[in-house]
């Protein structure tokens, strides 16, 4: 059961988005977030939605998967929408009942806020996590942040930690499964009982897990030293990242998109309320 969780939610594929340089993708994701917050007009929201849907379609990630990714956010979306509907005051009163006044502006705000949240999540996932392997992502972060080394920020160490964490997550998940089975064989019960009892039931799982994690860390440290690891200094990398024409193309598309939003905001807002 634990094994079914896939961290980072990377879906291997060969779409343009998969092939784009991970460093570029991180920058594009940031640009995309900025773009989402630049949207001020209904027409802008239409463009944003169309752009995001196009991203999903070209990524090759199944729509079902994307929808499933939105699911945990549904509560926040509904909550924001309700708050907007109830508390936005405007000029076009639609419904008035007891102390509740619903304005057209409120409905519009609710719709736009929902679109904004969903786009943020879907867009960044499609640009980054769904289409970039965790290792490429870590690598890209290290390279992008490498100028910070001048300020004595341990960029390499941070990236190394990320890599090792990613490497050991499946191992530790498997180990958790095994320890749980072993303690179940000794009559441990993880499913029934009151909340505090259930939390306590995990002690026999967590302690061996920690002990084992520390042992692994010890072993790994020695193994790394034996492979001449001495921190980031003087280190080279096997894979060099090269920018391609398609990366430039991606940047141009994103720039066009942002420009489009700005233009629509100003010249063709299509305000209906």
């Amino acid at each position: 059961m634990l094994r079914d969780i896939t961290l980072g939610q990377f879906f291997p594929g060969s779409s343009v988005l998969h092939k784009t340089d991970p460093r570029v993708k991180i920058l594009l994701a940031i640009a995309y977030i900025v773009a989402v917050f630049l949207v001020k007009s209904p027409s802008g929201y239409i463009l944003l939605s169309a752009f995001t849907i196009t991203l999903v379609l070209i990524s090759g990630v199944k729509v079902k998967v994307v929808l499933k990714g939105i699911k945990p956010l549904i509560f926040i979306v509904i909550f924001t929408a309700v708050i907007n509907i109830l508390f936005t005051k405007g000029e076009n009163l639609l419904v008035s009942w007891w102390i509740i006044n619903i304005y057209a502006e409120g409905l519009a705000n609710a719709l736009f806020m929902s679109l904004r949240i969903i786009s943020l999540l879907v867009g960044t996932s499609v640009i980054l996590t769904y289409t970039t392997s965790p290792i490429a992502l870590t690598d890209a972060i290290e390279r992008l942040l490498s100028p910070l080394r001048v300020l004595h920020i341990p960029v390499h160490e941070f990236a190394m930690m990320m890599t090792i964490a990613l490497r050991f997550i499946p191992t530790l998940i498997e180990e958790t499964d095994k320890i749980m089975s072993a303690q179940k064989s000794r009559g441990a019960d993880f499913q029934t009982g009151k909340l505090h009892e259930r939390v306590r039931a995990f002690v026999p799982v967590l302690i061996p897990l920690f002990v084992s994690a520390f042992r692994r860390a010890d072993d790994l440290a020695v193994a790394m030293e034996c492979r001449c690891y001495r921190g980031g200094r003087g280190r080279t990398r096997m894979t060099k990242l090269h920018l391609h024409l398609r990366d430039l193309f991606a940047v141009v598309v994103m720039a066009a998109f942002i420009a489009g939003i700005v233009v629509l905001n100003k010249y063709l807002p299509l305000n209906f309320v």
């Binding site: 180990e175 303690q183 061996p208």
Partner: peptide
């Protein structure tokens, strides 16, 4: 049915 797993020493707590 008592079951002793492989490397059972890793479940001591």
């Amino acid at each position: 049915v008592g079951l002793v797993f492989q490397y059972p020493e890793y479940q001591l707590f």
